[in-house]
Amino acid sequence: MIKNIVLCGVGGQGTVLASKLLAAAAMEKGFTVMSAETIGMAQRGGNVFSNIRISDGEAMYAPMIGTGEADLILAFEPGEAVRMLPFLKKDGFVITNTRAVKPTTATLTGSGYDAGPMLEYLQKKVADGHLMQVDGDSAAAALGNPRVLNVVLLGAAVRTGALGLTEEDILNVMGKVIKEKFLDLNRKAFTLA
């Protein structure tokens, strides 16, 4: 069986660490992992995404995911969740951060963009009970470090059960991926309800 995951957000939100944690936990269980990242020009404020694929032994050749194939979309920004939604499987899960990141172009032109219509659209499109809206920024800020947004959201994704990984699986590998002095903070962020 293969689990397909899409991570998406805006450059600088920390999608890379989240995908590294998922990969490390999956490998620890003997699964094979492939992923594809956006690196380069698109990072500077552009929309970014990662594809992560985890196989328990089924043949897997490419790191990329096709339309309608994602078991779960983990979105760091609601508009980006909408952008990547065509990749979601029927009955797939969507975990989305609720805070919109306004692009500079929208500020310049004064054109409106906010989270409301994005979240409403997700509510209409995603199967009942399969959409989780997380105010990740407030949760991260409450922990005193906005940078742990990625781990807060990852916790919510793992708790859906759609990834074939448990909270323990992730907690066990955190020490391998995250620096000692940030470990406690990240553990707290990950288990935050």
């Binding site: 450059g11 500077r44 404020g45 508009g79 909408v82 692009p103 172009t105 219509p117 994005m118 499109k125």
Partner: peptide, 16 residues
């Protein structure tokens, strides 16, 4: 018949 997605913002790369 499905609901149409709202306009998603364009995010060109910019100077930090």
């Amino acid at each position: 018949e499905a609901p149409q997605p709202p306009a998603i913002p364009i995010r060109p790369p910019v100077l930090c």
